[in-house]
Amino acid sequence: MTALVISEHNNDELKPVTLNTVTAAKQLDEDVHVLVAGKDCASVAEASSKIEGVTKVLLIDSEEYEHFLAENIATLVAKIAAEYNFILAPTTTSGKNFMPRVAALLDVSQISDICAVESPDTFQRPIYAGNCIATVKTTDEKKVITVRTTAFDATSAETGSADIVTMEEVHDSGISEFIKEEIAQSDRPELTAADVIISGGRGMQNGENFSLLEGIADKLGAAIGASRAAVDSGFVPNDYQVGQTGKIVAPNLYIAVGISGAIQHLAGMKDSKVIVAINKDEDAPIFQVADYGLVGDLFDVVPELEGKI
């Protein structure tokens, strides 16, 4: 019995969400292996080998995996899965993309987005935008699981010393092709790993006004997020969206500015440790989840906050 964690990376750096996924894996099995599939990704395997408690790193370095196309990765993982009882990946857009494909190839029901492990076959997962938590038990022998990374602490990535085993596995489906990628370059922390997040909603009125949040983000080392309304209105790009159908975050401090607090937005941030809401409508639902609410016009409050923080 061994658990396999599919690492998330960009061929260069290991993404921190992998470390949370390893924590979930360790609750299932003592023996945890990490798969690093990509192209020119030896540095990722190196980093993975240092994750505490990981006993083996499988490195598969081949150009078919460079862009993590689901068709190729899923075939690879399903093949390797023969040796494993648990296959886990973080619930990121990448994990969401290929893991159900792995599950179907193995004829098992994936357990999506677990937020707690009760036993090796019983898990908790949020349903209905997190308004309910379901405890589910699977009868599948192989368990294919995606992990809500905000629900598990990160395992240390410094002290481990796993062996790196290089494997040759080529799976090119030939039915899909990568064309291009527009990945935002930013000096700010990633939303899913940030300690502090400041998010803007429709109340920001336009994209330029998001610069009001940048000053505070600079001072606090925060990431910037947004509601769906702000993304749909074109104020900020899609990767800013926090919520049921965007990113799930749980920073130490979440500051919601000009966001009403629809259930779909709350679903993505209500596990934050401390929530601050700034809104001019004292009846806005966001105040029901806020630890500290400030009723006021954001165009007065935000500059003042930036000046004084």
Partner: peptide, 14 residues
């Protein structure tokens, strides 16, 4: 064009 965590990715599928 796909919405991914880091931004956008474009793929072509048969």
């Amino acid at each position: 064009t796909r919405e991914v965590d880091g931004g956008l990715q474009t793929v072509s599928v048969n």
